[in-house]
């Protein structure tokens, strides 16, 4: 856009961006910095990024022993992995049928998916809770996973993708002897990898970070997802032992941040596609 920017313009632009960056990243930097410091340095009003006396080992050890941090992370992996896997199993066949097959009721079903896109996740919370209560599944992995098996976003995204696959490919496959399910598995899925990754990013970020639902259905510490575990930890510490607390938040935040840094393009694609819609 700004092909003829002056030198001053360049400097100004970067100055503003870097100043903003300092503010945006300050919480992360300070979180890491604090997680390395002993209490007396944390409570001093002198600003310094690196500690005089390193207390990283103590803080992180304490974080891992006070609460089952690894357990929280594992729960996060089980829950987000379980949700995404089941979402794929449910969404992909439906998305394929909506995109490529002709059947009565297709338009109605697609309208339902569009309506599903509009409903915020918190709206069905009370009846879902009642249902889980009635079948005795509160406070379980099932309670964390099952309610999110239907993903309107996933169906919508994959349908849009399948629509772009040429019909001839599907026709050739039918002549080659493949049934609809095999066309889905052998032809469509391998082609749909990029769209599935974008869907995966959105699904995993949404459910890894979800706090509202685990807070409602989980009582037992052992089943806490990372956000809920963070809260348990904070309450345990009564908000005073900041070193280990910050060490804990570093550990909880790290997986997604690392995932993001590793797969930036997919993240940004997925997010742009969805407007960050769960």
């Amino acid at each position: 856009m700004n092909r003829r920017g002056t030198l001053l313009g360049h400097i100004l632009r970067h100055a503003v961006l870097i100043f903003g960056l300092v503010i945006m990243l300050a919480p992360f930097v300070w979180m890491i910095s604090t997680s390395l410091k002993p209490p007396n340095e944390i409570f001093s009003t002198k600003l310094s990024l690196l500690p005089n006396n390193w207390a990283a080992a103590e803080n992180y050890t304490k974080a891992f022993t006070k609460v089952p941090l690894l357990r929280y992370l594992l729960n996060g992996v089980i829950v987000t992995g379980g949700i995404f896997l089941l979402q794929l199993i449910v969404s992909l066949p439906c998305a394929y049928a909506l995109a490529k097959l002709r059947f009565k009721g297709r338009d109605i079903l697609f309208t339902m998916v569009l309506i599903g896109l509009m409903i915020p996740a918190q709206a069905p919370a009370i009846p879902r809770y009642v249902m889980l209560y009635e079948v005795g599944l509160l406070d379980s992995y099932a309670a964390l996973i099952v309610p999110f098996v239907f993903s309107a976003f996933g169906i919508f995204l994959m349908r849009q993708f399948f629509k772009t696959v040429p019909d001839d490919l599907m026709h050739a496959a039918r002549l080659d002897g493949l049934g609809e399910f095999e066309i889905l598995c052998r032809i469509m899925l391998p082609l749909a990898m990029p769209a599935m990754l974008a869907f995966g990013v959105i699904s995993i970020v949404t459910h890894w970070n979800d706090f509202f639902w685990p807070l409602i259905v989980i009582q037992t510490g052992d089943l806490a997802t990372p956000p809920l575990g963070t809260l348990f930890f904070r309450n345990e510490e009564a908000g005073s032992d900041f070193g280990p607390l910050m060490a804990g938040t570093v550990v909880i935040t790290a997986p997604l941040v690392l995932l993001f840094l590793a797969a930036q393009r997919r993240f940004i694609e997925g997010v742009t596609l969805s407007g960050m819609k769960g």
Binding site: L17, G20, L21, M24, L25, A26, P27, F28, W30, M31, T34, I42, F43, S44, T45, V205, W208, N209, F211, P226, P227, L228, T230, L231, R234, G239, F242, L245, M246, G248, T249, I252, T253, L256, V257, L259, F260, L261, Q264, F267, I268, V271, M276
Partner: peptide
Amino acid sequence: YRAAYFLPVTSTLIAMAVVWEFLLHPSV
């Protein structure tokens, strides 16, 4: 820049809320 400014979006808000609580601590 894009990655850096996007970082808060992906980070777990609850964990960052705990960090903010510390950043907003009245004295330290």
